[in-house]
Design a protein around this nucleic acid. Structure first.
Lengths: 319, 319
DNA sequence: CCGACGCTAGCAACCGCTTTCCACGGCGGT
DNA sequence: ACCGCCGTGGAAAGCGGTTGCTAGCGTCGG
């Protein structure tokens, strides 16, 4: 009984056939193998505990059936959810995903991309990548998620329309002074949606606070926002909304009584916030599915897919 | 300018040397290369945009420098945090990690393990694996995280002592009737810690509610727990604690005024819960570091490492 | 002046698998 | 009886690297 890795040679020898036949059997390919031979080979495989070596196969075939996934932060619930959905989608198609975080740093991102390319990934999924992730000389398909880049195809939620929907809902509750917590530069769409809604309702522009996409950022942003006494706040991400909620609690402001809150993203965390958050939900599964599909099927031209969002009404808006 | 993948052959030809020399240069190995030749090769590499093929190297070397990581649920913030820490730790040592979820299903877990082995991972990290993940015939090092298994080494937080610490703190606030929200079978340690603390203080055993490790589970558990009117609740996971908080809010119970709450895990989410949760923090970075170190350095015997936890005092306990 | 040694660089085998091409035996058709 | 074809299995050429061994050659000591 061979101790170290059992190779196809061992199987061939054990079954008394050539290595080619083992391949034919394993791959169930177009090649025909006599049923009797086939059984002998299968027996040998079972007896020896043979596991085909995907590395060798990849070298020969020229494809690893592996995707690289880079997020700014694997700890962010939204990205974790996205990664999970992508993993499920990829697994269903026989792919596996190398997932890693870039910590929001362009240099790290670049290094990670290089590492993944070295590993011969069959495709690259970039979640909210830096503006210019230097994709020159990349010969595998790349798809950007939640951000559109000039040179590669992308898939993202309907940020602008979604934000507009959320803010419109706040307006429908009678709010006329609606603050916005938004991320740094490079993500203008949600802000535009907010403006769209305000303009359409003929309202004056509300106060804006810029912050990082984090609970901490939302917390601080809300504190400054409070100075201009909005009656409602729209946060451009869950994390920020959670921070907003905390700031409001600490200030003794009642939600939604004194100030209503709604947010973009809609990760599970928001359902259990207090009060439960009204959110514009990112279509995570769909984003994942479309991204993976595009990677596998290969786009010819670069295009940007926008997936509709869903407004989920909970308590924080006053519903 | 070659369009398709630039191989070492192209570089060799371009630089006018043999392929072996290219290897010597790339690997900065013990083999000596004349500085001048070396420069020529480096120039060629730059000019051609050559990227060594890790697949081929892995085949030749017999190691992929890749780890497989299986969690029950990539969407769980604790596991996401762990995965991130593991990724960072692995990346620092030149490894890359294939991360996937088993959805808490033993069959899926088994299938994922097989897939990863086929991919020739250099080691396997199993987070909170099923009781018997059928590891027969696995020739790579395996390490279990957050659960001890009979046949493999493991790394986990001091569940029992940590839980005891948390409950003792609750007791120090004067609570005498302390409920417990615990997961299903197979995770007895936190329950034991809770008992330890109660016994040491000479208190009667408090009410227990079993639930899945989820917000939903904690929510329901708290509802039943409330019937026996505890003055404090210890939740064995963050997620459950979040659910507990919601149940308490809905029941109009003041936290920590009427009922104090503390939990095990301590993911960032708890800091922004309302009120902020007192938690026993899992030493996530350390767990990750130790797990990766063991995988790389290779254990000779199976052993179980316990890493101490940290009590983080916030508002939910009454501090 | 010659031989030996040390420094470089090249040859070629091999990692495990896929796939093309070929060999061979038996069968049916003419 | 012969030819060709079909059904099956085997030999071998790579995929892109690494590395032990060898060869060329300049230099230095005797």
């Amino acid at each position: 009984m061979p101790k170290d890795p059992v190779t196809r040679n061992d199987v061939a020898e054990y079954a008394g056939v050539s290595t080619a036949v083992v391949s034919y059997v394993v791959n169930e390919g177009p090649r025909k193998v006599a049923p009797q031979t086939r059984e002998r080979v299968l027996d040998a495989i079972r007896a020896l505990g043979y596991r085909p070596n995907a590395t060798a196969r990849a070298l020969r075939m020229g494809t690893t059936r592996t995707f690289g996934l880079i997020t700014p932060d694997g700890g962010n619930p939204l990205f974790a959810e996205l990664a999970k959905a992508i993993d499920r989608e990829a697994a269903a198609r026989g792919y596996v995903v190398l997932q890693t975080s870039a910590d929001g740093d362009p240099l790290t991102e670049r290094a990670k991309i290089a590492e993944l390319l070295t590993r011969q990934v069959s495709g690259l999924l970039l979640v909210a990548p830096t503006a210019d992730p230097s994709l020159a000389g990349v010969e595998v398909p790349v798809i950007a998620i939640n951000r559109v880049l000039p040179t590669v195809s992308s898939v993202r939620p309907a940020y602008r329309e979604g934000a507009r929907l959320g803010v419109e809902h706040l307006i429908s509750h009678g709010h006329r002074r609606i603050g916005l917590v938004i991320g740094g530069a490079g993500h203008p769409e949600r802000e535009l949606g907010w403006r769209d809604a305000l303009e359409a309702a003929g309202l004056a522009e509300g106060p804006i606070a810029r912050a990082t996409f984090s609970r901490e950022g939302g917390y601080r942003a809300a504190q400054t926002l409070l100075e201009s006494q909005p009656t409602a706040i729209f946060a451009s991400s869950d994390l920020q909304a959670i921070g907003v909620l905390r700031a409001l609690h600490e200030a003794g402001v009642d939600v939604p009584g004194d100030v209503a809150v709604a947010a973009f993203d809609g990760t599970p965390e928001t359902e259990y916030a207090w009060p439960p958050l009204t959110v514009v939900r990112q279509p995570v599964e769909q984003l994942a599915r479309e991204a993976v599909r595009r990677l596998i099927e290969g786009e010819e031209s670069v295009d940007a897919l926008t997936v509709p969002t869903e407004l989920i009404l909970r308590r924080s808006c006053g519903c």
